[in-house]
Design a protein around this nucleic acid. Sequence first.
DNA 1: TATGAATGAGATTTCATTCAT
DNA 2: AATGAATGAAATCTCATTCAT
Lengths: 194, 194, 194, 194
Amino acid sequence: MQSGPTGRGARTRRRLLDAATTVIARRGYHAARVDDIVKGAKTSHGTFYLYFDNKEALFSALAGEVATEMESLIDRFPAFGPNAEGEAALRGWLDEFAAHYRRSGPVLRAWTEAEIAGDAVSEIGATATVRFVDALADRFRAGGAPSVDAHGAATAVVAMIERSHYYLLTGQLDVSDAEMTETLTRVTHAAVYG
Amino acid sequence: MQSGPTGRGARTRRRLLDAATTVIARRGYHAARVDDIVKGAKTSHGTFYLYFDNKEALFSALAGEVATEMESLIDRFPAFGPNAEGEAALRGWLDEFAAHYRRSGPVLRAWTEAEIAGDAVSEIGATATVRFVDALADRFRAGGAPSVDAHGAATAVVAMIERSHYYLLTGQLDVSDAEMTETLTRVTHAAVYG
Amino acid sequence: MQSGPTGRGARTRRRLLDAATTVIARRGYHAARVDDIVKGAKTSHGTFYLYFDNKEALFSALAGEVATEMESLIDRFPAFGPNAEGEAALRGWLDEFAAHYRRSGPVLRAWTEAEIAGDAVSEIGATATVRFVDALADRFRAGGAPSVDAHGAATAVVAMIERSHYYLLTGQLDVSDAEMTETLTRVTHAAVYG
Amino acid sequence: MQSGPTGRGARTRRRLLDAATTVIARRGYHAARVDDIVKGAKTSHGTFYLYFDNKEALFSALAGEVATEMESLIDRFPAFGPNAEGEAALRGWLDEFAAHYRRSGPVLRAWTEAEIAGDAVSEIGATATVRFVDALADRFRAGGAPSVDAHGAATAVVAMIERSHYYLLTGQLDVSDAEMTETLTRVTHAAVYG
DNA sequence: TATGAATGAGATTTCATTCAT
DNA sequence: AATGAATGAAATCTCATTCAT
């Protein structure tokens, strides 16, 4: 009689995760209340604690999902060369990143907040950033970049990519998706080969 | 008879602002409790509310101070040319920015948190970013940059500068102050003239 | 699945309202603390705010209940004539009023306090008094009273009835329930036909 | 060097009492804050406690002043007869009462509130009411009223007078000063001889 | 005689979590 | 598997009173 992972229970759990994403997007990590989440998921407080030990556990689960996708994305960062083909590869990857950020932005933003407070979630965020930087530095070197400080450049580029998309997400700056990818492509290329 | 801005009251107010900065640095904006702040300022809850209408008012005051400094800094951003002198001017300004961020970093980070939650403080942060981008785009054009999209490039550069210093502040990445300024100088220069 | 108005929630809400009535009776409107109320209702602070947005909201709810009863009572005020039957009708109504005041006295007293402070509850009390006066003036005229100023007489009579019962409730004067009804009947009758 | 009772100190004390009357009028007894009073008196918290042991002491002083006037007024209540002269005497006294209430209304209202809370001030209010009722009952008997229950009638009349003036003061009802005195004269006369 | 900054006890309110149904 | 009323610890905020100057 157990309904299995595709049964009602799994769907309720999913609803809670999705509702949490929405609430975090609207009110931020710290201001996200269990009450808002269960209302969004059209369920009850009791049910929440049936699926998650506590509020932080839900955020961890959410962060875990995003981190997995993010890691595979990071692994695909191309060792682009100084030529037009390299730029095209870079542009393609930045497009993928943009798509990912559009989907997971709220949770990624939550990392930013959490980093300050030193919660468990923050670990995931910090680790992901380090992996991101290391992967880029590695590809910069593999791509045959000249005498630049690969790690330094990677840090700057990661900072630029992350924060630019954040600006895009919050809508505080007046830029389009396509323009931004273009600019990020150009500047990243210039950062390594310029 | 008035004690004036140098009197005891002004000093107590200052102590509260400074203590708040410390607490925000340690625990983040939303987790900063009035109790921590008054303990840090070695005063009482009652005194807190003598100087600020509520917790948010203190954060606004803090943000206002930082915004004022930030604005004057932004106004000094150089219209750097493609030559070595331009790069030196840029490097000098980035050094100043680093110094400002070292001092005001916690409050600047708080902006990020506040932006998400949509608090009153968030306005101040968002406005500052817009001013920052506009100023840079203006100088890029004034510096005689080639056919680049000045506003797009400015957005990317501001994102890079802001977030890189954030990484430095949180210590999550392994970079030195001097190295970072160097990299930011090089990449910003490349972003415009590369 | 809904528990409906007879469920546990409704009973808890009722307990809070009743406890508040008791506390107001003992300590007055302004001195009534949430803590006293929840203790009286044998529940917790959290529960209080589950049913009422804040302390004032509870008082408003309480005032609303009393006002509703009061209005229907006011509507039943008789258009008494100068004869013995008229006096009997008046006496009957004053008996009802006394019963109402015995039940709702504390809340009615709270109106007086609230009126002074200008709280939201005060509106309810002031409105009820105006309705009371208007209804009596109307009945005085309908009863065929002679050339008296109906509105002025109604004001005086309402003042007398209200305040007399207040004296009775606070126990500051040495009068019995029955005696008071008798006196009020006689004086009201005299006020119109005397 | 002492400045005596007419010196600066006495004037400061007076300013505090007057400011308190104003504040009580506007916000009520319980809501009257020391801060409001010292601001109204253009002095400081420290000075307040130089002249009064605590907030209640100030209210007692204020009530004492009013009570003294009130007692002499009560003592002058006439033993009016059933004739026109009696009515004139009554009218004259009610005019005096109205003048007194116009001046001291806020403090008299404060008594009403205080009665509920059981403060020291409340004693003064309750005592004054008892004295008022007793005096009227006495005069009713002295005036040769027929077989009425003098004490009961006095209670009703005191209630009517007190509360009617309260209505006038709060402005919640639409009556003029002169009309009210006229009505009160007529009804009081009727209550005894009607 | 006067000041006003400082205090802290006590009030209101919030919200993650539990538990009986 | 689900509910939602209840809880209480912890947060924010108020205000009468004190005290150093």
